[in-house]
Design a protein around this nucleic acid. Structure first.
Lengths: 195, 195
DNA sequence: GACGTTTTTCATCATGTGTTGAATTGTGCT
DNA sequence: AGCACAATTCAACACATGATGAAAAACGTC
C-alpha cells in the first residue's frame, strides 16, 4: 500500500491544502453544496483531518472566508476624493479587489452564500445598511434612500454577472473597459438628476 | 385521534396546497435548502403524498417552476416599437411580470436556483445567449457583445436586489419610479455612446 | 349496497452527511 | 535512545433525507 496510516513523511502543508480546497468548493458549490468529504477528497486527505484542523463545518466556512479586506478602509480614498468622478473610482477599486486571484474565491463564496443560503437578511439588514451605506452616504448628492439602492443594484448585478455566474463577455472584459462603461451609470445614480 | 389514515372527508385540493408550499419553499430556501418533509409539513400532509403526486424531488422542482411566461412573446411588443425609449419599455414589462404575485414565487425560485445551485452554466450558456440575446440584439445600436452583457448586468442586479434579496428601499419602490430611474441606464447601454 | 378507484398515512430502507474517539506513524527535543 | 507531541487514518454513531410499498379510509358508479 502506498497509503498508510499515521503521519506522512516530509513536511507537506496539508492544512493549507485543505483550506484552499474548501475555499474553491464553497465558491463553486456554495455552503450546502459543499461536503466535508468532498473537501477532504479534493485535498487528498481523510475527512477526520478536516475536523481536526478546523472544527465544525461552520468553522471551516468562516475560516475559508477570511478575506483580509476591510471595505471601509479600502473605500476611504474613494470617499476622500469627493463626489467628482467617484463612480469610476469606486468601480476601479471594487474591480481591483475582486480581480485579485488571491481574494476572488473567498469573495465569490461569500457572495454566493449571501444570495443563496438564506442569510439574505445579512445583506439586507447588515452589510448594505451598516457597511456600505455610511460609506456611500457621503458621496451621494441627496436622497440617499433612493440613490444607494440604485448603486447597490448596479454593483450587485456587476458582481453576480462577472464573478458568480461569470458571463463570458463580462468576465473577460478588461477592468478598465468596465470602469469606463459602467462608471457613468454609478455616477448618475450618485449625483445625477433622478426623478 | 383526529388524525387518521386514509382519505380525508370533503374534497380538499391537497395537490394544489402541496404545490404552492413547494413553490414558496423553493423560492425562499432554494433547491438544496428545500426538503420534501418540510414541504409536506407545510402543506399539512405526509411526505409520501408529495411523492405520490409529483414523483421525485426534481420533478417537484420543475412542477413548481412552471411559469406560463414565454420571454420572447412578452418582449415582442417592446422590440416592435423600436429602439426609442426601449429602456423604459423593457423595464416596465420586466417589472410587471416580476411584480405579479401569481408568478413571483416561481420566478424567484428559478432565479435563486440559477445563481446558487451550480446550474450557472444554464444562465451563462443557455438562457442569456439563446433567449435574451436574440431579443435584445435587435434593440442594440452596435457591438452587441459589449452592450448586451451590460444590460444583463443591470437587470440581474435589479432582480437580485429587488426580488431575491429584497433590499427594502428597492423592494418597496413603486415600479414606475424604478422605470424612471433605471430606464436611462438601460437606454444608454442599448443605444448610448459607449467607450 | 357492492366494488373499483383515488387519496392518504405508516413503517421502512438505503444513502449521504457531520462528527467523534481510538489507533498508528512520523518529527523534534533532551 | 527515549519520549512527548503532532499529523493522519480507521471505524463507527447518530441523524436527516429521498424514496418505496403496503394498508386504510373516503369517493363515485353501477
Amino acid at each position: 500500500m502506498t497509503v498508510s496510516r499515521g503521519r506522512r513523511p516530509g513536511a507537506p502543508d496539508t492544512r493549507a491544502e485543505v483550506l484552499t480546497a474548501a475555499r474553491t468548493s464553497f465558491a463553486e458549490k456554495g455552503f450546502r453544496g459543499t461536503t466535508i468529504r468532498a473537501v477532504a477528497s479534493a485535498a487528498g486527505v481523510d475527512p477526520a483531518l478536516v475536523h481536526h484542523y478546523f472544527g465544525t463545518k461552520d468553522d471551516l466556512f468562516v475560516a475559508a472566508l477570511q478575506i483580509p479586506v476591510d471595505p471601509r478602509e479600502i473605500l476611504a480614498p474613494v470617499v476622500a476624493a469627493g463626489p467628482d468622478g467617484a463612480g469610476e473610482r469606486l468601480l476601479r477599486t471594487l474591480l481591483s479587489v475582486w480581480d485579485d486571484p488571491e481574494l476572488q474565491p473567498g469573495l465569490v463564496a461569500l457572495a454566493r452564500s449571501l444570495v443563496s443560503d438564506d442569510s439574505a437578511s445579512l445583506v439586507r439588514d447588515g452589510f448594505i445598511p451598516v457597511v456600505i451605506g455610511p460609506v456611500l452616504a457621503s458621496l451621494v448628492r441627496d436622497r440617499p434612500e433612493v440613490r444607494i439602492p440604485l448603486v447597490a443594484s448596479q454593483i450587485i448585478g456587476l458582481v453576480v454577472a462577472r464573478y458568480v455566474v461569470a458571463l463570458p463577455p463580462l468576465a473577460l472584459m478588461p477592468a478598465e473597459d468596465v470602469v469606463a462603461r459602467v462608471g457613468p451609470t454609478i455616477q448618475r445614480y450618485l449625483t445625477g438628476d433622478l426623478p
